[in-house]
Write a protein that binds this DNA or RNA. Structure first.
Lengths: 104, 104
DNA sequence: AAAACATATTGACAAACCTCTATATGTGGT
DNA sequence: ACCACATATAGAGGTTTGTCAATATGTTTT
């Protein structure tokens, strides 16, 4: 998998903030309304909205509007894509280990 | 797996910057000396040093000093721990999908 | 039409982050 | 001891990020 560094950085921003991690944990047992997330977190409504935008941009979270309410859930497709990026960045080949410096 | 939000955020910082992602890509085929990384990247030596510190802090990368040289490699243990964090944050239960808002 | 409610946007501020230059530290060779 | 080299640290400047209060947008109910 050839991967776009800029795009990959955006994806993993989802996991780089304490509050977003808590939000993801809240979404583990299924879709939740923004108001539910808000009452479970210790942040203001605009701050939640800001984090949800970051999570949507990462592709890890899906949003669905229904009337007044906004429902958020973890995106299986987004997670799968992020997993592939993760693998592409961490799957060491096993060959060429312990190289010595060229200038030795 | 119960996970520490603050610690998890630090781990995934490794993947949140374009240059760090390029560094990880360079490490995919095995351990490399800092001077090798430096010549492959378009940044100054102190900037590389800064990113390497972030990568070490994340646990994704291992450092090994040998004489004047510093060798970096992807840490299998760090990657495995990160993978567990990723799974803990994205493994949806499948139950309780499409909840409706309490205030409907 | 107006009021009530849920969410998003704007603007401001502080903290964190990325980058650089300059300098310090530590190691090896002469 | 000195110099050359590899890397780290300090400090500064600019950008991004996280947070909030205030306000705007859009929806439902009365």
């Amino acid at each position: 998998m050839e991967l776009n560094p800029k795009k990959t950085a955006v994806i993993f921003k989802a996991f780089c903030d304490e509050n977003r991690i808590k939000i993801l944990q809240l979404l583990l047992d299924g879709e939740k309304c923004a108001c539910r997330l808000l009452e479970a977190m210790n942040i203001t409504q605009p701050t939640l909205s800001h984090h949800m935008k970051t999570l949507l941009d990462s592709g890890i979270v899906n949003g669905r509007k229904e009337g007044k309410w906004m429902y958020y859930s973890i995106s299986a497709e987004g997670v799968e894509y992020a997993r592939q990026c993760f693998n592409a960045l961490t799957a060491v080949s096993g060959t060429n280990e312990n190289q010595s410096c060229c200038k030795k």
